[in-house]
């Protein structure tokens, strides 16, 4: 029997900066972001990105956190958990990360992570994650000034995208490009609710639409839905996108077109923004605590 292909799969990844040596670092801080779809760990050496991992979330938050850590540390000889000075958990599963020193919401972490990833000029952050979307206004230091969250619903999220990939038998990572490869932009599907959109899509396929056209219609619907969150918070330049859906060009391009503002080009894996922010907080908090201690 042929192995069943899982179209929702995306490549889990790791990164280690070969030019850095963790043994020389004064402070090693880390952040773990346990989301509903994916989990990440970022390790900083004295505030600089040293390593990260990006993996699918498991059946429970502690397990997901463990997976992310195992994956991240496995390629770094000698670095073990005990050597990490401070670790902060974030994301949907943040309170259930057993080895975290502290939990901080994904909102504050994405704000700070985006500030690092895209620079101090970023004012508006759109985080498109596994189960919800957020828009965040930040200042030049990456501090959250205000935020909006959409309702918990698979529409316009990574989970919804995965469901769609399975249904159309299209690898989830190719959806964006395919959706842009259409002769003419179709009308958006009328419902972004995954359940309804699925039946609407199968109707379109039956009536002779190409997969690309259906994907274009779905991506457009998701972009329109996200537009509401952006309009409500008010897009101030610069504008940056974080989270898994930031990798879907089909949605990003359409959002950019709708708001008339281009998003900054990411230099890192957009999915690590939350864990990165958490690791930065960890670094800062550890420094502050040590300062206090040495002062005492």
């Amino acid at each position: 029997m042929a192995e069943k292909k899982e179209y929702f799969r995306w490549v889990e990844s790791t990164y280690v900066n070969p030019e850095m040596d963790w043994k020389k670092a004064d402070i090693i801080s880390a952040g773990i972001d346990v989301g509903s779809v994916s989990s990440q760990m970022v390790v900083l050496c004295d505030g600089q990105i040293y390593a990260y991992s990006n993996t699918r979330s498991g059946s429970s938050s502690p397990k997901s956190a463990n997976n992310a850590m195992d994956l991240c540390l496995k390629d770094i000889p000698g670095l073990t958990f005990d050597r990490i000075n401070y670790l902060i958990g974030t994301g949907y599963g943040r309170v259930n990360i057993p080895f975290a020193h502290k939990a901080i919401t994904e909102i504050s972490c994405h704000a700070l992570g985006a500030n690092f990833m895209y620079g101090p000029s970023v004012r508006t952050v759109l985080d498109m994650g596994g189960q919800d979307c957020k828009t965040i206004h930040i200042d030049e230091k990456g501090k959250c000034l205000s935020f909006l969250m959409n309702d918990k619903c698979a529409a316009g999220t990574g989970r919804g995208m995965e469901v769609f990939a399975e249904m159309l038998k299209v690898p989830v990572t190719e959806i964006g490009d395919m959706s842009l490869d259409v002769a003419e932009e179709p009308e958006a599907v009328s419902s972004t609710c995954v359940v309804f959109a699925k039946s609407e899509a199968s109707g379109l396929l039956k009536s002779g639409w190409s997969k690309n056209m259906v994907l274009a219609a779905y991506c457009k619907a998701m972009a329109t839905r996200i537009l509401e969150l952006l309009t409500r918070i008010g897009v101030e330049k610069e504008f940056a996108i974080t989270g898994g859906i930031a990798k879907n060009k089909g949605i990003v391009k359409r959002i950019e077109k709708l708001i008339g503002v281009e998003a900054l080009i990411p230099k890192y894996d957009t999915q690590i923004a939350g864990a990165l922010g958490a690791a930065m907080f960890a670094n800062a908090i550890y420094k502050k605590q040590n300062k206090k201690m040495s002062a005492a």
Binding site: I107, F281, I285
Partner: peptide, 21 residues
């Protein structure tokens, strides 16, 4: 629960998470 908690927590962080990055 859930989102309500996250929103309030993020709000509290806006008030109290003062660290030098």
């Amino acid at each position: 629960s859930g989102q309500i908690r996250t929103r309030i927590e993020a709000f509290v962080e806006m008030l109290s998470l003062e660290v030098e990055i």
